[in-house]
Simulated assay, not measured.
Amino acid sequence: MNASELRDIIEWMIGGARSAPTPPQMMAECCERLVRAGLPLWRIGVFVRTLHPEIYGRHFFWKPGAEVETGTVDHNILDSPEFAVSPLSTVFRQGVEVRARLDDPASARFPIVVDLQAEGVTDYIAVPLVYTDGFVNASSWTTRQPGGFTDEQLDAIRSIAVPLARYIEIITLRRTASLLLDTYVGNRAGERIMGGQIRRGHADTMDAAIWLSDLRGFTALSDRLPAETVVEILNLYFDCQVSAIRDHGGEVLKFMGDGLLAVFPIDEYLGDEVQVCSRVLEAARASRAGVEALQFANGDAVERFRFGLALHLGRVLYGNIGGGNRLDFTCIGPAVNLAARLEKIAGRLGRTVVASERFAGISDGGWSDLGEFPIAGFAKAERVYGLYDEAPVAAAS
């Protein structure tokens, strides 16, 4: 092991590994430099847990002469029998090293040893990567060197684990902040906040298609069901909309009880109103079908659900609004207010999807004129449109 080269690698990592701008590139360069310094590495893995509602963690695998493999695992891995008997499970739970020399019969307790033997691996060590707050991630190191790792080589791996943990902690914190912002405020809003748009009053205007929906009969439903059941129903109901909205270029800004506010931005330079409205309508039809198919067993009865959706096109103010140090990144403006009024009209008319005259005039979706209605807070009445393929039903209470 070349001690001078090892120190250079450690200093490079402490300095932020600037020659490798992405985590996979950093891992590739680090492992290649370690091999040149005399560390006989074969398959190396780094396993990083994440703060994400769907993803338990990310993994990175390096082998000589190959691209770094990356992937994710969901939270179900915690219940898998394979993970329970993995060395990594011990590292995560106890924060200790786990070694499996393949010539040691005791290593047979780890099923992964069989796979490693098939690759010609002679030694395996899982090393904790400990953050400054004590949070533990893990790394695995293998070699095909006869006799396994030497004590000097193991010490080199342990010395690398410390700066590697710091590098991963910094990258993970930035990534976690981005993921949390995406999860709780939406992708575009998250990008703006990460970009420094954090002060109250920081706002921009944009043209967008506005989506405002509401679950019919929710008040009566929540009055007669346990709170836990209501939350479960809401999650199923929102699932019917969120994926359709995101798949068609929209961004969910806010959940308001059983209500949902989303926007589909219009590019001011492309002038793509027709394409945007077409995607919005596709998302609306997909959401309508999903909610119509949704049912929930309630004792001997089966609850079925309906929702109302108002679509409008207009200019919104998009930015930070709030009081003191508690802010919300959302959109406001007359266009949003009009969408909210239209959603109430949809309920009175027994319609699922309604649109303003401006949206229906741009979207070629087969609209029927439902009449002109006075709008509270607006001086002018608004003509409202409904889909041809939708018959009105009795409004839910």
Results as ranks from 00 to 15, higher is better:
residue 1 M to Q: 01
residue 3 A to W: 06
residue 7 R to D: 14
residue 9 I to M: 09
residue 11 E to S: 11
residue 11 E to W: 03
residue 12 W to D: 12
residue 12 W to T: 09
residue 12 W to P: 14
residue 12 W to A: 07
residue 22 T to A: 04
residue 27 M to E: 09
residue 31 C to K: 08
residue 34 L to E: 08
residue 37 A to T: 15
residue 37 A to I: 15
residue 38 G to Y: 00
residue 38 G to S: 05
residue 40 P to Q: 03
residue 44 I to V: 14
residue 46 V to T: 10
residue 48 V to C: 06
residue 48 V to H: 00
residue 56 Y to P: 02
residue 56 Y to S: 09
residue 59 H to F: 13
residue 60 F to E: 04
residue 61 F to P: 10
residue 65 G to L: 11
residue 66 A to I: 07
residue 67 E to L: 07
residue 67 E to G: 04
residue 69 E to W: 00
residue 69 E to G: 01
residue 70 T to L: 06
residue 71 G to P: 11
residue 72 T to G: 05
residue 77 I to K: 01
residue 78 L to K: 10
residue 83 F to D: 00
residue 90 T to M: 14
residue 91 V to C: 05
residue 98 V to T: 05
residue 99 R to W: 05
residue 102 L to H: 14
residue 103 D to C: 12
residue 107 S to R: 10
residue 113 V to E: 05
residue 117 Q to K: 15
residue 118 A to W: 04
residue 122 T to S: 10
residue 125 I to R: 07
residue 129 L to Y: 08
residue 131 Y to M: 08
residue 134 G to F: 12
residue 140 S to K: 04
residue 142 T to G: 03
residue 148 G to R: 12
residue 152 E to Q: 10
residue 154 L to V: 15
residue 155 D to V: 11
residue 157 I to N: 06
residue 160 I to K: 13
residue 164 L to V: 15
residue 164 L to W: 15
residue 166 R to D: 07
residue 168 I to M: 11
residue 172 T to A: 10
residue 174 R to H: 09
residue 175 R to G: 04
residue 178 S to I: 06
residue 178 S to P: 06
residue 183 T to W: 05
residue 185 V to K: 03
residue 187 N to E: 07
residue 192 R to D: 13
residue 196 G to K: 06
residue 197 Q to M: 13
residue 202 H to E: 12
residue 203 A to V: 13
residue 208 A to L: 02
residue 218 F to K: 09
residue 219 T to F: 11
residue 221 L to I: 13
residue 223 D to F: 00
residue 223 D to K: 03
residue 225 L to G: 08
residue 227 A to Q: 11
residue 228 E to K: 12
residue 228 E to S: 15
residue 230 V to T: 15
residue 232 E to V: 14
residue 233 I to H: 04
residue 236 L to H: 06
residue 241 Q to K: 04
residue 243 S to P: 09
residue 244 A to F: 02
residue 255 F to N: 01
residue 262 A to K: 01
residue 264 F to Y: 09
residue 270 L to V: 06
residue 273 E to Y: 01
residue 274 V to S: 01
residue 275 Q to V: 01
residue 277 C to T: 13
residue 284 A to Q: 05
residue 285 R to K: 09
residue 287 S to Y: 00
residue 291 V to W: 06
residue 292 E to R: 14
residue 294 L to Q: 07
residue 298 N to H: 10
residue 300 D to T: 10
residue 301 A to Y: 08
residue 302 V to S: 12
residue 306 R to T: 15
residue 318 Y to R: 04
residue 324 G to I: 14
residue 328 D to S: 09
residue 329 F to Y: 13
residue 332 I to P: 08
residue 333 G to V: 10
residue 336 V to R: 00
residue 337 N to Y: 02
residue 337 N to V: 08
residue 342 L to I: 12
residue 343 E to P: 11
residue 344 K to G: 12
residue 344 K to E: 07
residue 350 G to C: 12
residue 354 V to R: 01
residue 356 S to K: 03
residue 357 E to F: 03
residue 359 F to R: 01
residue 364 D to E: 10
residue 366 G to A: 07
residue 367 W to E: 00
residue 369 D to K: 08
residue 374 P to E: 10
residue 375 I to R: 01
residue 377 G to N: 03
residue 382 E to K: 00
residue 388 Y to T: 04
residue 388 Y to F: 13
residue 389 D to P: 14
residue 390 E to S: 01
residue 390 E to G: 02
residue 390 E to A: 01
residue 392 P to W: 11
residue 393 V to N: 07
residue 394 A to N: 11
residue 394 A to S: 13
residue 395 A to E: 05
